[in-house]
Design a protein around this nucleic acid. Structure first.
Length: 909
DNA sequence: CAGTATGACATTTTT
DNA sequence: TGTCATACTG
């Protein structure tokens, strides 16, 4: 095993495999889980990582590939490894793990050293309330400071809101410059001087008998601003401007070059001035934000990394940090390294350096793929990957170029598309799976009204050819495309299940929006809200809204629910909304604060055809991928500032001004560099998109202005469509929220949803149920030891949704089950399978637990609700019938297990 | 027909 | 605020 290793892992080349193998090897070499710091980017990835390691340990020996790789890495024999299996399982499942997201880790450091930063260690983590923060900041300014802000705003012609937005951007970057004071009057003088020279050009042209109308129009400036809007100023010489050509002589060229010189001086002065002023204001803001945060005792994620970095670079010694951290990390594993931001790396650096310089057994490993770096816009710095290698020669590098994900046709197609680009570092991948299907389809419909016509056609064609709709994913560039495509396909195939993985705000979801507008209408009595409502729910304009409801005498929750019912718009999102409304004390708070609610929408249906953005698809794979061209044009980068880096070191910060590139070579170079990076981003997005498909990939390309022109993709159809494998799991079990009216009691009594978790079908109850099922699914045997292991997995996976007491609750319930005599009698010495899926009469069913004992079959279905509903019995007897039919066996018995806190009830059906 | 002016147009997102 | 389509100019 290489102690220090950087792994370049192309898409589908077994990155998680490598991480898992390394982790287990470290355990075999005597490391404890606590000292192996494993960093990922999302909670999802962190959960998946620990689950993957656990499952691999549990099934150690079954998968040859894993065993071989671990043997190779650890230099132990397979027998030696297998003899330690139960020890490893125990070790891993009973220890505190150090598998975190980077943000969680940074947060952890800050809390441990909060005293040195002068903050409380019990701070909350929250989003900033931008409106409040920006207005409070204004109030905090002295008259003089306030004037500076106003001057800047007027001078730059920028609104306060947009300036404030820039502050946030600067905050993220955490870079500073020395502020120099430049007097505004200097700029005014420079403007006058430039205009004076330019007026000589104007006079010259107007006096030139050959001047065309266009030439005369080109000199119609009265002031400096009009002057610099002229295109001809970009030329090097006057004669290069065709409308001036006929009048060009040496005198004109002299005026021209003099004007350009003066304008150039203006630009230089101006960019330095604006940059300084902006940073001056920003520093004020930064100071204020610190005060504001500490008074409210909360921090934003950006604050956390900012303060943490400041702490490390000024107040605490690196050695001190390392030895004071509550756990000593001897091993570091970093996933998706290409997405690490500069600031995050700077924070991790002392820990990495400590490992690299230690004489003990300490290791450092990072894995990533710069081709998949698509998050530069939020700080990801792909240059870091090679920079760390270059600056630490003891770190080895290995490249994974075998693709275990996609079929031959797909791999080859991607190879030929990317390896011909000369400005792109690409190494051909080797495929291991044969066949596959690639089609590039020039879709003229994409530019017309019926945009998605051909996509719908293709979907039905694929389904006819035997591709399961659950195996299809459609990838798009924007969330907007996801939504549009979703509603189109829903219209075309009403019974098709479609899921959209999106993160949009809950308050923007149609049904929720309808409710908000209804309430605002009832409260403010302003027609605009009623018309919004009519538009959303598809009523004719001016339709009336008649609901007799007294907002004042009901709780907010109650009103929201009543209105939802009245409008008939109750769904998962509305349910979540109802829950969140409990935080509003009264209707006044609600109408004024609801627009700031930051919660995200629920992913409605988790089964079916998937539509998602390419960004979201990163790290995922699909049987069949339909890849959509960029529908709308890309927007221009509207940042005020241009950060120029030399690899990872800040070289310069520029205040962006249109036209400055004509006068400053350095600025021009910086712009060019930025453009090259943007171009690389674009290629990376394409790379990510084209490496998601396992079997079939179909590209819908616009006839003109297609992003695929970057790769010069031609119309093609290669190979044969591969059918869905019958064994593919085409149903992801999740308990759908069954909507049931909450018992609201009488009007005078405000409702409390959280009072009775057992009966209300809240989201909390939903997660509780799923987690309980997950716990039972993860148990190898129905004994205490298995429960103990499984409950740890539940903790890792559901800690975001459930708290400690919930976990304890689940444990207690399951504990009672494994102590239940009848249940134990039925399951002991029997064969059983969990989450058994079966297809019966065209419908897919999942049985929680199926037990086979002495030729008899027992079906078990877990419920975490207290209610015993007829519906449960019907569901289970349906399973019973199906099993009897399929197995041709009459000895099938079914049970519903009600897992309650007070006791377990086994109900025979 | 090449060069120029003008107006319309629009992203990605975790913690 | 950069890009693109389009219309205009000489």
């Amino acid at each position: 095993m290489k102690k220090y290793l950087a792994l370049k892992a192309s898409a589908g080349s077994g990155k998680t495999f490598a991480l898992t193998v390394r982790y287990i090897t470290l355990l075999l070499k005597g490391a404890t889980p606590k000292e192996i710091l494993t960093l990922t980017f999302t909670n999802k990835a962190a959960n998946e990582m620990s689950e993957r390691i656990y499952k691999t340990l549990l099934s150690l020996g079954e998968d040859e590939a894993y065993l071989n790789a671990i043997a190779l890495e650890s230099e132990l024999s397979k027998e030696q490894i297998l003899s330690k299996k139960s020890y490893l399982v125990n070790l891993f499942s009973n220890a505190a793990l150090s598998i975190f997201t980077i943000d969680k880790f940074v947060n952890k450091i800050l809390r441990e050293f909060s005293g040195y930063a002068g903050i409380n260690d019990d701070f909350e983590i929250k989003e900033d309330d931008v409106e409040k923060l920006s207005s409070k900041f204004l109030e905090s300014l002295s008259l003089e400071e306030f004037d500076k802000l106003i001057d800047f705003s007027l001078f730059e012609n920028k609104k306060y809101n947009s300036i404030f937005e820039v502050f946030k951007n600067m905050f993220e970057k955490a870079e500073t410059i020395d502020v120099v004071n430049i007097d505004l009057s200097l700029i005014e003088i420079q403007k006058k001087e430039a205009l004076q020279e330019a007026l000589k050009i104007k006079e010259f042209i107007l006096n030139c008998p050959n001047a065309s109308n266009s030439a005369i129009k080109a000199v119609d400036y009265e002031n400096f601003e009009e002057l610099i809007s002229k295109k001809w100023l970009e030329k090097d010489r006057a004669e290069e401007y065709s409308y001036f050509k006929k009048c060009s002589n040496e005198l004109l060229e002299e005026f021209f070059s003099k004007t350009k010189e003066e304008v150039g001086n203006y630009y230089k002065l101006r960019s330095a001035f604006s940059l300084s002023r902006l940073f001056e204001l920003y520093n004020l803001f930064k100071e204020y934000k610190r005060r504001y945060n500490s008074s409210k005792n909360y921090l934003h994620f950006d604050d956390i990394s900012n303060i943490c970095y400041e702490l490390l670079s000024t107040k605490i010694d690196k050695e001190f940090l390392y030895f004071r951290l509550d756990s000593n990390f001897s091993h570091i594993l970093i996933d998706e390294f290409q997405d690490t931001s500069l600031l995050q790396y700077k924070i991790l650096k002392p820990l990495i350096e400590e490992i690299l310089s230690s004489s003990e057994f300490k290791t450092f490993f990072y894995v990533g793929d710069t081709k998949q770096s698509i998050y530069r816009f939020r700080g990801g710095k792909r240059e870091l990957f090679d920079y760390v290698l270059k600056t630490n020669p003891m770190v080895n590098v290995e490249v994974l170029n075998t693709n275990y994900r996609s079929c031959e046709q797909v791999v080859n197609y991607v190879n030929q598309a990317f390896n011909k680009l000369n400005s792109y570092e690409y190494h051909d991948q080797i495929s291991v799976h044969k066949d596959g299907y690639v089609e590039v389809f020039e879709d003229e419909a994409l530019l017309s009204e019926e945009k998605y016509e051909n996509i719908a056609k293709k979907i039905s064609e694929l389904m006819q050819k035997g591709v399961n709709s659950n195996d299809i994913a459609i990838l798009t560039y924007t969330n907007d495309d996801v939504l549009n495509l979703y509603s189109y396909l829903k219209k075309m195939f009403p019974s098709l299940k479609i899921s959209t993985e999106m993160t949009s705000k809950l308050i923007n979801q149609e049904n929720v929006k309808a409710i908000i507008n209804a309430i605002k209408y009832l409260y403010f009595q302003e027609g605009i809200y009623k018309e919004n409502l009519n538009a959303i729910i598809g009523k004719a304009p001016e339709s009336s809204f008649e609901l007799n409801i007294d907002l004042k005498y009901r709780s907010v929750q109650e009103s929201v629910l009543k209105i939802a019912q009245f409008l008939n718009v109750t769904d998962d999102n509305v349910m979540k909304f109802v829950e969140l409304c409990s935080s509003y004390k009264n209707i006044v708070d609600f109408v004024y604060e609801i627009d700031e609610l930051d919660a995200s929408i629920e992913n409605s249906e988790q089964v079916g055809l998937q539509i998602l953005t390419i960004f979201k698809s990163k790290g995922l794979e699909f049987h069949t991928v339909l890849l959509l061209d960029r529908i709308k044009q890309k927007v221009a980068n509207r940042d005020y500032l241009l950060f120029e880096y030399d690899n990872v070191n800040l070289k310069n910060i520029y205040y962006k001004i249109g036209g400055l590139d004509n006068y400053s070579i350095e600025y021009k170079e910086a712009l060019k560099k930025e453009k090259a990076l943007e171009f690389e981003d674009e290629l990376n997005i394409l790379y990510v998109a084209m490496t998601r498909a396992k079997k079939n990939m179909i590209i819908f390309k616009k006839k003109e202005k297609s992003v695929f022109d970057l790769l010069d993709l031609k119309i093609a159809a290669l190979g044969e469509v591969i059918k869905s494998d019958n064994k593919t799991k085409n149903y992801e079990k999740s308990e759908k929220v069954i909507y049931k009216a909450l018992d609201l009691g009488k009007q005078e009594k405000p409702i409390k949803v959280e009072e009775d978790n057992d009966n209300a079908y809240t989201l909390h109850a939903k997660y509780f149920g799923i987690a309980t099922h997950f716990c039972l699914e993860m148990m190898n045997n129905f004994d205490e030891k298995s429960l103990h292991l499984a409950i740890n997995l539940v903790k890792n996976r559901y800690s975001n949704y459930l708290d400690e007491s919930d976990i304890a609750n689940i444990k207690a319930r399951v504990f009672q089950l494994i102590a239940h005599e009848e249940f134990l009698a039925l399951t002991s010495n029997a064969n059983y399978s969990k989450e058994q899926s079966l297809i019966y009469k065209g419908e897919l069913k999942i049985i929680d637990l199926l037990v086979e004992k002495e030729g008899k079959y027992f079906i078990f279905d877990y419920k975490t609700t207290r209610d015993e509903l007829q519906e449960h019995i019907e569901q289970v007897s349906h399973y019973e019938k199906a099993i009897k039919n399929i197995l041709v066996n009459d000895e099938v018995y079914s049970f519903i297990i009600y897992l309650n806190e007070k006791g377990v009830k086994l109900k025979k059906v």
